[in-house]
């Protein structure tokens, strides 16, 4: 069953990210209780949204109402929320977790999050170059790992603003 679901997931992902309108019309009408919070700000509490795309460390995936329960960790990237009225909201997250429970509740908890339109492109570029120089000068393994994470965040920031 799990293997089947796994093989189905890419197909579903393709379907969900490209044509969200169609999928909702096809009868995924059940409600989703969506909570999206970061340590610095709360975006949604128990809201009913159409679809959420999250970047997880095992690959990005879209969540529709009644998604199979799972847990995953977030990697730096953009969380896209398709609200019930059809509008789209893009939020950049640095890291965190995503939980999908069997009661159709979805929790996305981020360490830090920020609306993509509020990101400053030149500042993002600066973060990336700073992280790269940090990586170049890192000596110990821990420092290197930290710098690598910073570079990853920087790259995603630049990609999000591009």
């Amino acid at each position: 069953m799990a293997a089947l679901a796994r093989s189905l997931r890419p197909a579903m992902r393709l379907l969900s990210s490209s044509r969200p309108v169609l999928t909702t019309r096809r009868g995924y009408a059940d409600e989703m209780s969506f909570t999206f919070a970061a340590a610095n700000q709360v975006y949604y509490v128990g809201a009913n949204v159409k679809q959420v795309d999250v970047p997880s460390s095992s690959g990005s995936f879209g969540i529709l109402p009644n998604h199979v329960p799972t847990i995953a960790t977030l990697k730096p990237g953009v969380v896209t929320v398709y609200e019930a009225d059809g509008s789209k909201k893009e939020v950049f997250v640095s890291s965190g977790t995503v939980t999908i429970n069997d009661d159709a509740s979805v929790q996305v908890l981020a360490e830090e999050a920020c609306l993509v339109e509020e990101l400053d492109k030149s500042a993002c570029q600066e973060i990336l170059s700073k992280a790269q120089s940090q990586l170049a000068s890192a000596s110990s393994a821990v420092e290197k790992a930290e710098a690598e994470i910073a570079v990853e965040v920087g790259q995603e920031l630049v990609r999000a603003t591009a």
Binding site: A2, P69, T70, I71, A72, G96, T97, T99, E111
Partner: peptide, 26 residues
């Protein structure tokens, strides 16, 4: 009820729990 959760391995649960410990403490 862990079996109803899809595509879990120890690595995912471990990093999930580490982050959730920080969130709980926060």
């Amino acid at each position: 009820k862990i079996s109803i959760y899809d595509s879990l391995d120890d690595e995912v649960i471990k990093s999930y729990m580490e982050f959730s410990l920080a969130s709980l403490l926060y």
